[in-house]
Simulated scan of single mutants.
Amino acid sequence: MTLTTASPPLTPILTPIEARVLGTLMEKARTVPDSYPLSLNALLTGCNQKTTRDPLMELTEAQVATAIDELKSAGLVRETSGGRTTRYEHNFQRGIGVYEQAAVLLGMLMLRGPQTAGELRLNTERWYKFADISSVEGFLEELQERSPEKGGPLVVKLARGPGTREQRWAHLLCGPVDATQTGAEHASRSGDGSVTGNLAARIEHLEAEVAELRETVQKLCSELGVSPPGQS
């Protein structure tokens, strides 16, 4: 990890692995709060999961541990004490100096790559409920116009790719990106990104709801002293 030479405060430039580790911690803090902070093993599993990740990664425990050390040095991850297992939590919002809504958007961009404002609104639904696409665009524009005194821009609006109707946004936490090339590559990978992204996000949201309902049913059955449906 290196630091930019912009005026203070300095904005860390992350490696792709550090971005994946940080994004995963940010995601799990909101989607599985009962299991957060994360152990090294849980963090590794989250980094390597095969859904809601772009690109997919096959990281090793050593790679994740090294990334944690670098992020701790940059003040973006903290180690929590207590218990027999060391656990980790992010300090992104304070470490980077952004509002909660901006942190949510940056976290999702780190995990899933370039996305349209509409995709971001849908994909972040379990993290934060934006009122509409315009509010998402407003925070993205603020991040794009961030002044040098605050560390400089953190996102960039990509050129519209072939066959796409909306422009995508990409984060700059890993350094500058080629706006034209990145937009085209993402469009080629996902085809109609708005449809593919929306479908994946809806499936993930439904799965989360089913899990919550199942847990609620199990608690009610336990309180009533009866077996859950499907069990003798």
Rank of each mutant, 00 (worst) to 15 (best):
P9M: 03
E18K: 02
R20Q: 12
R20K: 10
G23Y: 06
M26I: 05
K28A: 10
K28V: 14
D34G: 06
Y36R: 04
L44K: 14
G46M: 09
C47Q: 14
T51H: 10
R53H: 15
D54C: 08
M57V: 15
Q63N: 04
A65T: 07
T66N: 10
A67S: 09
E70Y: 04
L71G: 02
A74D: 05
G75R: 01
E79L: 08
G83S: 11
G83W: 15
R87P: 10
H90I: 04
Q93W: 06
R94G: 06
V104G: 00
L105E: 13
M108H: 03
M110A: 05
L111N: 04
R112S: 09
R112L: 06
P114S: 12
Q115E: 14
L122Q: 14
T124A: 06
T124I: 15
I133N: 13
L143M: 03
S147M: 12
E149I: 07
P153T: 01
L154I: 03
R165F: 10
Q167K: 07
P176E: 03
P176I: 06
P176C: 02
V177A: 02
T180N: 15
G183K: 11
R189C: 05
G191R: 04
A200D: 06
V210S: 00
E223Y: 11
S232P: 13
